[in-house]
Amino acid sequence: MPTIRVELMEGRTPEQKKNLVKALTQAVVETLGSQPASVDVLLYDIKRSDWATGGELWSEKK
């Protein structure tokens, strides 16, 4: 059973997440030959204040 963990900066809409989950599931089905029901996708929303790139928090970027 493939499990995909996706970490996203918060702010995506439910529709965007739904489309992402469908696309990831389909990619696994096509690539690995898995059944859709066996593919788990875990979405983690990360606050901008908990995500940094280049030593700078995203919540402090302009």
Rank of each mutant, 00 (worst) to 15 (best):
D45W: 04
E15H: 12
D45V: 04
D45S: 07
T31N: 09
T25V: 02
L24T: 00
S38V: 10
E7A: 13
L8G: 01
Q26W: 06
D40P: 03
A23L: 07
L43W: 00
K22H: 14
S34P: 06
L24E: 01
A23S: 08
T31W: 11
D40V: 13
S38L: 08
P14Q: 07
K47Q: 14
V39H: 10
G33L: 02
L43S: 03
L32S: 08
K47N: 11
L24W: 02
K47C: 05
V29P: 00
V6Q: 09
A37C: 07
V29Y: 02
L43T: 00
A27K: 11
T31C: 10
A23T: 13
V39C: 09
K17Q: 10
R48C: 06
V6G: 02
P36R: 03
V29A: 03
E7G: 12
L32C: 13
M9Q: 14
T13D: 09
K17L: 13
R48K: 15
G11Y: 01
T25S: 10
T13H: 07
K18P: 04
K22L: 15
R12C: 07
E10A: 14
V21K: 01
D45L: 06
M9F: 15
M9A: 14
Y44N: 13
E30H: 09
A37N: 13
T25G: 03
R48T: 12
L42S: 05
V29G: 00
D45E: 15
T31G: 09
L42R: 14
R48Q: 12
Q35K: 12
K18N: 05
Q16K: 04
V21Q: 02
P36N: 01
G33K: 08
L32T: 08
A23H: 09
E30M: 11
K47Y: 08
V41K: 04
E10M: 04
I46S: 11
I46R: 11
L8S: 03
E10Q: 12
K22C: 11
A23I: 03
V29H: 05
E7V: 10
A23C: 08
T13A: 07
A23Q: 09
Y44G: 05
V41M: 00
T25A: 06
R48H: 10
A27W: 14
N19F: 07
T25W: 02
E10C: 04
K18A: 11
L43M: 09
L20K: 01
G33F: 04
V21E: 01
T13Q: 12
A23V: 08
V28G: 00
T31Q: 06
A37V: 06
P36G: 05
